[in-house]
């Protein structure tokens, strides 16, 4: 938390990776803090700026292929940010963000683009585009079933140093050959507290559909669990969850 008591949530490159509305994840995080009386600010980190390295939470979203490589190059040029993501902050990386946080992204021409290497995973073009609703069960404590929408051309395989974020119940995951959804950077036993990365292919935005995941990230960033939220704040949430999980 920053000195003046406000939690800083950075949206990385909303101008480059804004195709799938994942910046909504930051709105969810900030509002869930404010509803509990915790001040929060959202910082849009656009390509023309020097990225802040002291934010509590970082979110990064999905985008088209060209934009993805531009974003990866930009992130690789900012060492301080990379260190913050690797060691200090809690981060949510979605879709292209997941691929960029991995080790290697291979494009359709077979060219390998370096990722940030924050997660032990590699991505390459799939035989066909992966599109559709997905339901999975998270490995993170207290998060439970998660819902979201897949829409990507690449497929991803995890290495030994990354763990699944979730196991799919129905619908697609990272790769047609596995039932793995997303990735997390640390052993799940330790993941209830402290910094780390949660990565997923799920849009929706994922935190709008899965409030328990939002609270998991916030608890890690604050170092303590948050009090429960008055359900009247989100009168439509039960119907939303029933729409996708029923």
């Amino acid at each position: 938390m920053r000195a003046h008591g406000s939690v800083a949530i950075a949206v990385l490159l909303p101008d480059v990776l804004g195709t799938y509305s994942d910046a909504g994840n930051a709105v969810v995080l900030a509002q869930r803090l404010r509803w509990r009386g915790v001040a929060a600010e959202i910082v849009d980190v656009t390509a023309g700026t020097v990225p802040p390295t002291g934010c509590d939470l970082y979110v990064i979203g999905g985008g088209e292929d060209t934009a993805e490589y531009v974003a990866a190059d930009w992130l690789a040029r900012h060492d301080g940010l990379r260190t913050a993501l690797a060691e200090r902050a809690v981060s949510l990386a979605v879709c292209a963000g997941l691929q960029i946080f991995g080790r290697v992204m291979t494009d359709r021409a077979g060219v390998e683009h370096a990722g940030l290497g924050l997660l032990d995973l590699v991505s390459s073009p799939g035989a066909r585009r992966t599109v559709g609703e997905s339901v999975s069960v998270s490995t993170l404590p207290g998060v439970g079933r998660v819902t979201g929408f897949h829409n990507h051309g690449g497929v991803t395989l995890l290495g030994p140093d990354a763990l699944p974020f979730a196991h799919t119940e129905r619908g697609p995951g990272n790769h047609p050959g596995t039932r793995v959804e997303g990735a997390v950077s640390r052993p799940t036993a330790d993941a209830a507290t402290g910094p780390g990365i949660v990565a997923t292919y799920l849009h929706g935005p994922v935190l709008a559909r899965n409030p328990a995941l939002a609270d998991h990230l916030l608890a890690r960033a604050l170092g303590a669990p948050l009090p429960p939220l008055d359900p009247d704040r989100l009168p439509d949430m039960a119907a939303l969850r029933a729409t996708y999980l029923g």
Partner: peptide, 28 residues
């Protein structure tokens, strides 16, 4: 997902109702 890109601030102060098969997404 694109509902999250809508400029909903223009709705502020108006009486709003949401409906349809994705009413809950818009409501959230």
């Amino acid at each position: 997902s694109w509902l999250w890109d809508l400029p909903v601030d223009v709705l502020r102060g108006r009486v709003v109702a949401v409906a349809g098969e994705r009413a809950a997404d818009l409501g959230v």
